[in-house]
Structure formats: C-alpha cells, structure tokens
Design a protein around this nucleic acid. Structure first.
Lengths: 237, 237
DNA sequence: CGTATTATTGACTCCATTCAAAGATAGTGG
DNA sequence: CCACTATCTTTGAATGGAGTCAATAATACG
C-alpha cells in the first residue's frame, strides 16, 4: 500500500459527515487506518455489480452514483441516488452478496470500509457499531419515504425528488438552489416510476409556475416554498 | 422480574428463526438472559407508536402486526406486515425514535431485545452484531422489492403479496397454501397502493382463473405456479 | 335480530402512459 | 469549424388502467 493511496478520515473534507460523526478523535484514527484508499471511476463504471460479494461499506467522496436492480421481468430499476458524503453497500449486508449494482453517474471517487475488518472494528469501537446501525436505519427511513411517495401522484414525486436532492446537497455544503442533474429524463422517470415524457412535462409545468428554472440538466429552484407546499397539502377527501 | 415472564431463546419454538441463527449455544444463552419476556396484545393495540423512543428490536412470537406511517398529507401508509418469527423496530435505529407505528393485527405476542443492552451485547457477542446487520440488510432487500413492485401493475402487486405471505408462512412452518388474511381489503389496498375495489376485483379475477380460492379473508392458493408466473413473465416491448 | 362494518359489482372519469413526430444537444471525425 | 450522427428532450394526440362514485350484498358484532 503506497502512501499515495493513504486517506485520512480526519483531514477529509467530509469529516463529521460520513462515518465519523460522534466518534472520538482516537476512534476516527483507528478507522482511518482501516479505510481503504479512494478509487476514482468514470461515468457508467460499476462500483459493484449485482451479485458481487460484499466487500464493505462505501462512502462517496466526490461525484454521484445510482443503485440499480433488475426485477424478475428483466427491467432495471434505479433504487437510489448517492451524493458526496453518503454511504452505500448496505444491500450486501444480509447475505454477503450485493442485491443491486452501484454505477457512477459522473467522475466519482469513493472510500471503502472493508468487510473483513468490520468484526474487529465492532469489537474495538462499540460506538462505531451504533453509528453504522444509525446509518443503516437512515437508509431504511429513506426507503420508507420512497415507498410512501410511490403511492402519490407524479407531481409530488418529482417535487420530492428535487427537494431531496436540494436538501442533501445543502447538507454537504453545495448550493441548495442550483445544481446539475447527472440523470437523464429517462433515468429520473425510471427512479420515480414515471414515463420520461411525464418528467419532461412536469419540469416544464414547474417552470411555467415559476417554481424552478430548467436549462437542460441544470436546475435552479426559484421558489422552494412552493415546491415544499406540494408535499404537505392535505388531500381533499 | 417474575419467573413467569422469563423466556428462553433455547426452548422457544422459533429457535433458529429469529435472532439466534448461527450463534453458539452459549451465545444464545446470553441473549436469553437479556431478552425481555413476551407481552401479548389484542388486535388494534400498539406495539409502539410513531415517535416513540426506540426501546429495542422486537420479535413476533405469535400473531401478526402492521407497520404504519403517516405522510405529510396526513395519510396512513401500511409499510409492512410482520409474521411470527420476524423482527421489527429497525425504523428506530437511526435516531432513537420510531419513524413508524407497529400495530397488532390480531392477538399477538412478542419479545424485546432491549436497546440499552445492545452495546454490551455487541461487545460480548460480535457475531450477534453481524447477525443483526444481516437482519437489517434483509429488511432493506424487502424494501427494495416492495419499491420495484410499486412500479408494476395491480395484478402483479397482489400476486406478489400473496406469494410473499405464502413463502414467509411456510418458512415458519405454517401452511403455504391456506391462510387467513388478518387485513381488510382496505388495508391490503393501502399496503399495495391500490383502491380497495381493485383488490376485491383482482381477488375475484384470480379466483375465476382458478389460481386461488377466496372465502372472505381465507385464501387458498390452488395454483401457485400460475401465481408465480405473473411475476416472471417478461414485459412485451 | 338489527346495526355497523366490510366486501362486491357496475358505470364513469381521469391521470399518466403510450405512440408518434419534431426539435435540441452533445460528441465525432473530416 | 462544421457537418453528421446518435442520443436526449419536448410536445401533441389517443389510449387505457386503476381510481372514484354509488348502490347493493354479505359478514361480523353487540
């Protein structure tokens, strides 16, 4: 292992964002020594494939990725989008095999907390265990929201998608109001369970309502309140 | 703590089904000493409420339960159904608060692995940690399937629902072909994102096609192959 | 036995998909 | 630098699957 590959969770810009939150400096050091150096991939390259052996928990350092899984009909589903500072790989925890693929959406670098060191880490840093469970639980809450969303009309799904991206980017220090989608309309539609035409029409609609500004894949949110309002208006029964 | 409340994971009929899978006898003993006695609830009673403090991981010993969460519009969503031997409570792992409620669907008894003993258990039984992560991962795989399913037509959703129940009941030693739904058409519809009328019509349709037999809430699967076939037929593109 | 809840069934409506065609954008090589 | 192609996006019109509304039927319950 060359020093070039060495990465430290201490001096990483994502400090306090991915794993180390709430751990002592000493504990973060132990993790730093175990976390594998970051790798960089280009758009379309696989972080792991469906069926791959679980190699550990992965943290996105820069770029973004999508989690993709095939159903029994052979259709691909984009389950999730991962942004900088976010963790993935939990889909391999249950049976040591990944049940979905992770694919870079743009030039993307990431770190790895190797699976074979996890048992030992759990032993030495009990609080890390809780921390990982916490992340695991957060993923489940996200899945829960996604699931509830899937029963809602198209407009809300897209609104939620944009707000979610905005919130998560903000948390990582990026602009909450301006960002580039690294997904095509096709991919957004796939993720939200909508036809690509519907995505296109709705983006247009939001723009006409002066909620957002669309320039190709660049989105500017001009009225986040209006966008949020779409999500908490009671249904008329 | 009276002896009446004492429960042992060793002599429990669910042995090797809920937590203990893959642990040594000694380790199971340690868990037995910590797992809190089972409680029994009647239909409609809450195992925990949305927003409750996380008290630990719960195992259903008998009966069944539903996980329910409210969205921002105030609509309830049935996220999941829990059968005997299955674990719940993972939705409280992330921030110590449950993000959904667990409600008994019939007379139901359950055990509790208390949260405050978890850190110590993790320390003493590292393999338990992996075991819990494994369960956690399984829940995520289920959520993933549910999410992919939500993009599929009504017929498939109901077919999957019936097959899932059948498979899970079989795994716990119950009949895979005959069972009683402890859910109303309304609840099934809510869970699957369908109108209750659609559920009713589809159950009728499956019965007309001689795939199942419906007598009120009792279901008999007469042609499980035909049911499974609905899930793995490629879409005609 | 009567009442309340739950389930079935039919008719109509609507949201989102599908089909289709034109327009925009990005990438490539001459 | 521009033409050329492939890919992606927009927009319109028609279709359809599932929802809603409404009325009746069956079941559970006190």
């Amino acid at each position: 292992m060359s020093k070039l590959n060495q990465v430290s969770c201490n001096n990483c810009g994502l400090d306090n964002i991915c794993l180390p939150r709430g751990l002592t400096e000493q504990e973060v050091d132990s993790i730093s020594q175990i976390v594998k150096a970051k790798k960089t991939l280009q758009r379309g390259e696989f972080i792991y494939h469906e069926g791959d052996n679980f190699r550990g928990i992965i943290a996105i350092k820069s770029g973004s990725a999508k989690l993709v899984s095939c159903d029994q009909h052979g259709n691909e589903h984009i389950l999730n989008i991962l942004l900088p500072g976010e963790l993935l790989g939990f889909d391999g925890l249950s049976d040591e095999k990944h049940s979905s693929a992770a694919i870079a959406l743009e030039t993307t670098s990431f770190c790895l907390l190797p699976a074979d060191s996890m048992d030992e880490l759990f032993h030495h840093i009990p609080s890390l265990t809780r921390e990982l469970f916490r992340h695991s639980g957060e993923k489940m809450v996200e899945d829960k929201n996604q699931l509830m969303l899937s029963k809602r009309p198209a407009e809300e799904r897209l609104a939620y998608f944009l707000i979610s991206l905005s919130d998560r980017l903000k948390r990582r220090g990026f602009s909450a109001s301006e960002f580039k989608l690294s997904l095509s309309r096709q991919e957004i539609g796939n993720h939200l369970g909508l036809a690509l035409e519907t995505v296109s029409r709705l983006l247009k609609k939001f723009q006409d309502e002066e909620i957002i500004l669309v320039q190709n894949r660049f989105i500017t949110i001009t009225n986040i309140q209006a966008l949020r309002h779409l999500l908490d208006t009671p249904d008329q029964d």
